[in-house]
Design a protein around this nucleic acid. Structure first.
Lengths: 159, 159
DNA sequence: GGATGTCGCACTGTTTTGGTGCTATTTCGG
DNA sequence: CCGAAATAGCACCAAAACAGTGCGACATCC
């Protein structure tokens, strides 16, 4: 449904919280106590963010997480990519999925409709724009409440 | 995954095909023969599009589908909405219309984190932008291969 | 050494997606 | 008037993605 996953949403909440704390170490427990998020899942999310190096982790008794970079240097695009993979607007992006059984009498090779698939290129372009949008939105801008800085005008020959 | 569904993709292919045919009646069979799409599902998609009044249907032996409007008057946004519902970037959308003034202290029936959920408003804003993008993309522009007309400048008085 | 953290991985239940079956109804062409 | 060819409607099924959980290991501070 063209929608972000819960994990991403939780991740955003956590990240904003971390941003508020400056560089302090914050435990999963603290965040989980404040928001109605299953702690267990939240922990999973934080781990993913750590793997993507958006946050730093400190193990041990007084451990926790903190932002790996200033909030201005973390983009929504990076967050989304870390938690749900690279956005793909269309399904036939580059590689062919798995050759499932096609209905009999149809002999078209998978997505090989060369002259046919005319929607692919435009959708790809659309995807680029979406990514650009996500990339323009920083954690800092989420923090202050204003989404999208957009200076997002089509840096083509702008009139 | 922030991705269009197969149904939408199929719908787009079908619609572009219909657009090529001008106002001619085109049967599901014809489209299904040309592209590697399960006819059955394609029929389902066309029905959905008919219900949304994006295409007109003609029953009976020589029946089929045709565009209900010129391709310039059909937007990607309408298509997506017809086939997968209104895009919802975040999960806790109550109903906030285009007004975008955040309700703040109003009683949320679901999302209980009242002062907390600071990511909600920004995400909502993001969603507006996405919708705008989809609305700017017409079937005609998909047809000619160039996605997004974007005259998509931020029609606010950007500095 | 124990309390309190993160790490890693596997696992389960639910929802969405992708796709199918069948029957009824409409319409054209003979 | 009959049958072929088409859409309409609806229920159903399988696979995949999503949401969430369990548990044992490791690290660190007190």
């Amino acid at each position: 449904m063209l929608q972000l996953t819960k994990k991403t949403e939780y991740g955003l909440i956590a990240l904003v919280h971390l941003a508020d704390r400056g560089g302090e170490l914050v435990s999963v427990r603290e965040i989980g106590d404040r928001y109605p998020i299953p702690k267990r899942l939240l922990a999973e999310v934080l781990k993913d963010l750590a793997r993507a190096e958006l946050v730093q982790s400190q193990r041990g008794a007084t451990g926790g997480y903190s932002l790996a970079r200033p909030a201005e240097a973390i983009t929504l695009g990076q967050i989304v990519e870390a938690l749900e993979g690279r956005p793909q607007v269309s399904n036939c992006e580059t590689s062919v999925p798995h050759g499932s059984a096609l209905p009999a009498t149809t002999r078209h090779s998978e997505c090989e409709m060369q002259g046919f698939c005319r929607i692919r290129a435009p959708l790809h372009r659309l995807r680029e724009h979406l990514i650009e949008m996500l990339e323009q939105t920083t954690l800092a801008s989420l923090q202050t409440g204003q989404a999208i800085d957009h200076n997002l005008r089509p840096r083509a020959q702008a009139s």
